[in-house]
């Protein structure tokens, strides 16, 4: 279930990137979103969660961005932040939006700063700000949809087990 959700989100990110205009407010970051939404499915198994995050990051680096280990690194750090947040807040329909906003802003900032650090990009406040706000709307919507879908599938599974 977890692998399927992560893989579908990963592939969907590539597909949607082709459909939305590049300069729009809808930059897809579905892989990060799927990492947050699937966290409860790991049942507090942090090591497994970090391994999945690292693998997803590495795949992202190899397939989409050609910047090996940048996304591996940022997704592992993001996963650590998610585990930390989830110690204090449980993910539900209400606070999912707040958590996803924070996680996206955190991940994108770290990602940009690392790219600047490794001289892949040159630091620019306006670019950073634009990248941050343009990656929020679509991903918040996707996180909500994904959360609802996972909830429905989980409920069906529980009923099947009882029967």
């Amino acid at each position: 279930m977890i692998v399927v959700v992560l893989l579908i989100s990963f592939i969907l990110e590539g597909i949607v990137s082709n459909l939305v205009p590049t300069s729009s407010l809808f930059i897809p970051l579905f892989s990060i979103v799927s990492l947050l939404v699937t966290y409860p499915l790991f049942n507090e198994n942090k090591i497994k969660y970090l391994i999945y995050s690292g693998t997803l990051g590495l795949l992202y680096d190899l397939v989409y961005t050609n910047t090996p280990f940048i996304n591996t690194f940022t997704l592992i750090i993001t996963a650590l932040v998610i585990t930390f947040i989830c110690k204090f807040i449980t993910i539900n329909k209400l606070n999912l939006i707040l958590i996803i906003l924070f996680v996206l802003l955190f991940n994108q900032t770290i990602n940009y700063l690392l790219l600047c650090l490794f001289r892949y990009r040159i630091f620019n406040n306006a670019t950073l700000l634009e990248g941050l706000y343009s990656s929020l709307i679509l991903n918040v919507v996707y996180s909500y949809i994904l959360y609802v879908v996972i909830e429905i599938i989980n409920k069906k599974r529980k009923y099947k087990r009882i029967i």
Binding site: E13, G14, I15, S17, N18, T22, I27, P28, L29, Y60, Y64, T65, T67, N71, Q108, N111, Y112, L115, R121, T127, G131, L132, S134, S135
Partner: peptide, 9 residues
């Protein structure tokens, strides 16, 4: 096949 995945690339 895909383009501009991630905001910065």
């Amino acid at each position: 096949v895909n383009r501009n995945v991630g905001a910065w690339y």
